[in-house]
Design a protein around this nucleic acid. Sequence first.
DNA 1: CTGAAAGCGCTTACAG
DNA 2: CTGAAAGCGCTTACAG
Lengths: 327, 327
Amino acid sequence: MKPKIEDVAKLAGVSPTTVSRVLNNRGYISEKTRKKVHDSMKQLNYYPNEIARSLFIKRTYLIGLIFPSTSNPFYGQLIFHLENIYAQLGYKVLLCNSQNNEQKEKQYLQMLQRNQVDGIIAGAHNRGIEEYDIPKLPVVGIDRYLSDTIPVVSSDNYDGGRQATQLLIEKGCKKIIHINGPNFLETPANLRRKAYEDVMVASQLKPITYEFPLKSNDEIVSGIIKDLFNEHPNVEGIFASDDMIAAKVIREAKKRGISIPDHLKVVGYDGTETTRQLLPELTTVEQPVEEIARKAVEILNFQIDGKHEDIQLEAILPVKLIESETT
Amino acid sequence: MKPKIEDVAKLAGVSPTTVSRVLNNRGYISEKTRKKVHDSMKQLNYYPNEIARSLFIKRTYLIGLIFPSTSNPFYGQLIFHLENIYAQLGYKVLLCNSQNNEQKEKQYLQMLQRNQVDGIIAGAHNRGIEEYDIPKLPVVGIDRYLSDTIPVVSSDNYDGGRQATQLLIEKGCKKIIHINGPNFLETPANLRRKAYEDVMVASQLKPITYEFPLKSNDEIVSGIIKDLFNEHPNVEGIFASDDMIAAKVIREAKKRGISIPDHLKVVGYDGTETTRQLLPELTTVEQPVEEIARKAVEILNFQIDGKHEDIQLEAILPVKLIESETT
DNA sequence: CTGAAAGCGCTTACAG
DNA sequence: CTGAAAGCGCTTACAG
């Protein structure tokens, strides 16, 4: 069986208390004892059982991460940074792919509570889930309003939408169409649309938004893009609410022999590493993914440490327009 | 404070033993008692502490996942499936981004042991790490030989390399170049190169492989691709060892005004969802990501359950050539 | 059908 | 500087 503290203690000829103290660098320990203990630990190949420790100290240093899918480049990159930051802070990360499924999400929430996580960071979903309002469980949302008391971190969606739309206007587009998810959601991401509409109106242009439904797959989105081109064959600019959609727009335009950027200009949103590698020609609004991760961790830490006075309820981080070849 | 089993017991007027039995559906419980206990749990909003449970049963239902980065589309998708499968099986998943850093990886390995994970699934790295040989800790490698006794799951890299190369030959290419990582590594992925060389030689063509170093970044890879085009301006076919590299090849070809597929044909490897969305025109060899995940879980489960006779030391899953517009 | 006791592997006051 | 005892929140024989 795995050696335990008692085994180390026996071999070193000391008490379990002493071994624990050596392990945790707590209290006074003579150099001689410390060495004996360390030698015994090495000899037995001992490593402490964190489960037992967690039970006692009532702290797991576990963080739950609930996001739709690591397969999506934006979330994949965000989770990468979150995990990195937490690893450096001595935390571990429990991964949950919610797939935007409310039922799954509730189950994960239960599971994370049972496993005594110190906190939760959760990413975009269709709507707030009241189950997130767990007394004393630190939670931070990313691009997502979970409840009135749960802090949200997001990129400056409004400014991103504004910059994207303005760029298209500056480049001479008049007929500019936006593609986005459903409008009824109160997500920060909806500000991309709001900004688009505001800028269009301010420039005396008519905003037109094509919406795809909440649970839409590849085909549905492709169909909507086809509709867009059929109904507006003379569209000059398209601002897609994310890079995946922008990629589909580009593809459809190519199929129709519409040359980009001469006859059509396209702007995406996200600007993940993966997009920039696979589709570097796309002009897009880059989210500060690492900074979002850092901010979310910072706010969650304030909650964990009980520093409630330091918590911002909303943190908005600046985006960066990356001009490439589609505009 | 959080209610514990004792609180539920008191409220229900029974012993903690009985509550535990209700919780675990073990032994005989009268319907009346069961109801009382359930009511009390609901009233107190009780949920069991898995940490305490784990300590006793010596089983955490935790699996450690060590992969270079969730930001990479292949690993992101693989991890997505692994997590999904494990969630359905009632397991939880601890995520570790090793970033191909041996030091980090060793630390994660320690951490996972301290946290009493039931098993580990680890993805590609530069070389085997002896620390993986932990007595009685179930481990499975994906596309990676960790040690003689650790099972490996991979796509049929040889067949993938063969199909890619043969396609290029069939399409009329004579001068076909391969781009891959360093050859000295004994990874299953190196079979892609081996297959390329075998097919070329069998077709009386000269294999030429451009290698990029182990720790290479964007720029280094781009530089190597530039070299390739400078040194072989008349190259007709390029088989890249993954889709990211293929994307760079396409980009460089465009810059040089080389038209694809007319004057140059390109084949990638991986065929992740993300690639297929962002770069659907790429011909590539699709890895059976979900099947790889399933197989790895299956083999790890055999180890966890002690069914050592059922364990395959090497599982190779079939790939699928997806012909698109770059060939 | 139900309960009292012991124990999972740690840590922390409290003594000395 | 070091140790004996109690306890973190569960579960499992063992009794009854």
